[in-house]
Simulated scan of single mutants.
Amino acid sequence: MSTPQSGILPEANTDATFLVLLLQNDQKSLQTARQFSGSFPSLVDGLAAKYPDSKLSATLSFGSRAWKMLFKDQSYPQELAPFKSQRDGERLAPGTPGDILVHIRSDRKDINFELSRMVMAKLEDSALLEEEVSGFRYLESRDITGFVDGTENPERDNRAAVALVPEGQPLAGGSYIQCQRYIHNMPAWESCPVHHQEQVIGRSKQDNVEFSSEEKAPIAHIKRVSLKEDGKSLEILRHSMPYGDSQEHGLFFISYCHAARHFDLMLEEMIHADGDGHYDHLMNFTQAVTGNAFFAPSRDFLETL
């Protein structure tokens, strides 16, 4: 049975670090990056064993360009493709550069920092840092908008069923990852009455109670992303985290799934207006500035490199 990477299935931590890297296209860089990939699980294990209180875990994943460069001799993830940019009027979800994603999670920011330094030292000059974002738990696991985040996440054994390519399929134990960094327009959001914010989200703000189907407005975020196909819910496992400082802040959205198309369909519902002109009105208060798609192979895959 395939073993997933350690950062996929655990419940939320207090801190996260996201490293988005651009792979250099020369023989030495590719060899260094491939060797690093093979040693990544043991690198994480060593630091996690040294600081067990940190609950450290991490995931290493690759974009379509990097996979073709690094793993020509391996199966290609069937649904791995560059992030599909989407636009409808002023609403935009851009695709941006990114070959490798390192997603580090723990309950200690200093341990995330240590692993980040070790990763960059191992990679040397084979990959250039495109973006580094530090996420943190905000209040009672809320987004900076004030609403509890991740309430629709699968629980217990269903997390693996949603996030991992099932046994019997190529690259079993792997996971498709999509991530976006959003910047929130908090002055505009905070100028709205709470009851209007609740209509935009589809939940009560203070008590975190989901509205009934009849109560949800057709523009509510939860309604737009709650999709079904052949009577079955299309789910994703979210590990999103708030990030930022006093001047710029928002959400680093990241999802794991056994299929890339679940996220693609949700994003379409958020960005594009339907026949009645309805779209996700949360998009009126936040803007995606990055967009990347990756595949995280199983731990077994990495250790065979």
Rank of each mutant, 00 (worst) to 15 (best):
L21S: 02
V44D: 05
E155G: 13
V165A: 08
E11C: 04
I144L: 14
S126F: 08
L80A: 05
H272E: 10
E152R: 04
T304H: 11
N158C: 14
A16P: 07
Y243G: 06
T145M: 08
D245S: 07
V148C: 02
S175Q: 08
D26K: 06
G95R: 06
D276A: 00
S233E: 13
P242E: 00
S126H: 06
A188R: 12
R203I: 00
A172S: 10
Y182E: 06
N112Y: 00
P4T: 00
N185R: 05
G291Q: 05
L237D: 03
P297V: 04
H272T: 14
G202P: 02
D207H: 09
D276E: 13
D73N: 10
A217M: 12
G250W: 06
T14W: 01
I222S: 05
S106Y: 00
L302T: 01
K205P: 10
P52G: 02
S42R: 14
Q86I: 13
S213L: 12
A93F: 13
V289E: 10
K232Q: 15
V225C: 02
L265R: 11
E11Q: 09
G291H: 00
Q287P: 13
Q178H: 15
L22G: 14
D276Y: 09
K109A: 10
T32H: 08
M120R: 12
E235I: 11
I8C: 02
E155L: 15
A163W: 13
E167I: 05
K84E: 14
S126E: 04
M1I: 04
N153T: 07
N25R: 15
G146M: 11
I183A: 11
Q206K: 15
Y176K: 08
G98P: 05
I183H: 12
S126T: 03
A12M: 14
D99K: 01
Y279C: 09
H221Q: 00
E190A: 12
L70P: 10
P10H: 04
G7L: 09
S85V: 06
V162D: 09
V209Y: 09
S37P: 10
Q5E: 01
S226N: 12
Q24M: 12
A49S: 14
R238N: 04
K72V: 09
I144D: 04
Q31V: 10
H196N: 11
I144T: 08
V20D: 11
M1P: 10
M241R: 00
N112M: 02
E229P: 09
